[in-house]
Write a protein that binds this DNA or RNA. Structure first.
Lengths: 205, 205
DNA sequence: TGTACATCAGTGAACGCGCGTTCACTGATGTAC
DNA sequence: TGTACATCAGTGAACGCGCGTTCACTGATGTAC
């Protein structure tokens, strides 16, 4: 914070913001370092004062994404407490809300094709995000009779998969196309049915 | 068919195969027309005897993918008959089998970023693939009491989303990572739980 | 069967382009006295 | 407060690269007589 001054103010963050805007607009593929620099009102070479190169800039986008993601999920989870079910459902909704509100971050995190071990920082950030999802699943799964309880990691993987699938196929232009349901409703209904299958919500609720 | 002869034999298909191999290896992004040509043992310019350009080649990959996909799904569906449930489950398994066996096709179809209306042919192929999924869902949903029955399109969207999510997050290197379950088991369990939630399989089965 | 011609799949050189990256520089900002 | 100096964020020109695409060509294949 309060680093501002110098020539630009805070070029580092301005570049991240430009990158995110470009990724949002054109996908993580269409993003170029040169255009991000241009959009930040700066020469491409200036980027190298703040990042090691193109990939490093994308990593920073993903990193900030995971930070926001983790905070949102954690907050949703805690807000839903003490009911494990409410906490879990809030977490699911927060997932989609994040994907919609921060599409650039989401793409940088999950669609940019960078290894989740690109840097130690990123590796840690990914682990945190995943840990939060799994914690919510873990707690909720305590309410399932032990003999019918799937491992919490599997449980959370299912929800994550469905959420991601809805985002990819139905929350953007491609390629599942114009299903006549808002993605939020689609996902909420899907998770509801899934949880009923686990015996976690009333069969006729 | 039997067009063979001339210089190369069947360059058109050789280019498609090369493109698919490259897409498999490097993702739909890493794919370049020049490299596909090279891999087919031919000058980049030769590609233009058979395709309008780079995108047209990718479209052909997606097109062939949809053809295989549709056939596989249809076959799985029919093999599972007359039980609607068995047919549906077979279709779900076929989905993942396709994604694993034809990763290049799968990526060209769902991850290459080309509009599903890039050409009329593609538009039609996408509609067919989707129609098959929805037909399986439609039939199965007849077995749900009408008052609790979700629309078949929603139903099929859920399964599609979960399948796609499993493929994207867990069936490849990124970024969900090394969950300790084979994706096949993960998906099969997920679909099983979901169907139980719909009351389509016994609660204690 | 043999020759003359037409076709057209593939060549190879060239193009303009934008990319990521480097480098010596310059000039505004912050600091020491 | 004012001057001299050090720092270092951003410049601008240049680079090599591989891309997609074009074009006049050439030479193997298929066809007509």
């Amino acid at each position: 914070m309060s680093k501002r001054g110098y020539h630009h103010g805070n070029l580092r963050q301005a570049l991240v913001d430009a990158a995110l805007a470009l990724i949002t607009e054109k996908g993580p593929v269409g993003f170029t370092l040169s255009e991000a620099a241009k959009q930040a009102g700066v020469t491409p070479a200036a980027v190298y004062r703040h990042f090691e190169g193109r990939e490093d800039l994308i990593v920073e986008c993903a990193l900030q994404g995971h930070a926001i993601f983790g905070d949102l999920m954690e907050y949703a989870y805690e807000t839903g407490q003490p009911s494990a079910l409410a906490a879990f459902e809030a977490t699911g909704r927060a997932y989609l809300a994040f994907a919609r509100k921060y599409p650039g971050h989401y793409m940088a995190m999950f669609e940019s094709g960078l290894s989740r071990h690109a840097t130690p920082d990123l590796s840690r950030a990914v682990a945190r995000s995943r840990g939060i999802l799994e914690r919510a699943a873990e707690e909720l799964s305590q309410h399932i009779p032990a003999d019918r309880r799937p491992p919490a990691t599997m449980f959370s993987a299912h929800i994550w998969a469905m959420s991601h699938g809805v985002v990819e196929l139905f929350a953007r232009g491609n390629p599942g196309g114009n299903v006549p349901f808002p993605p939020e409703d689609l996902l909420e209904a899907g998770i509801g049915i899934y949880l009923r299958g686990l015996g976690l919500v009333a069969p006729d609720g």
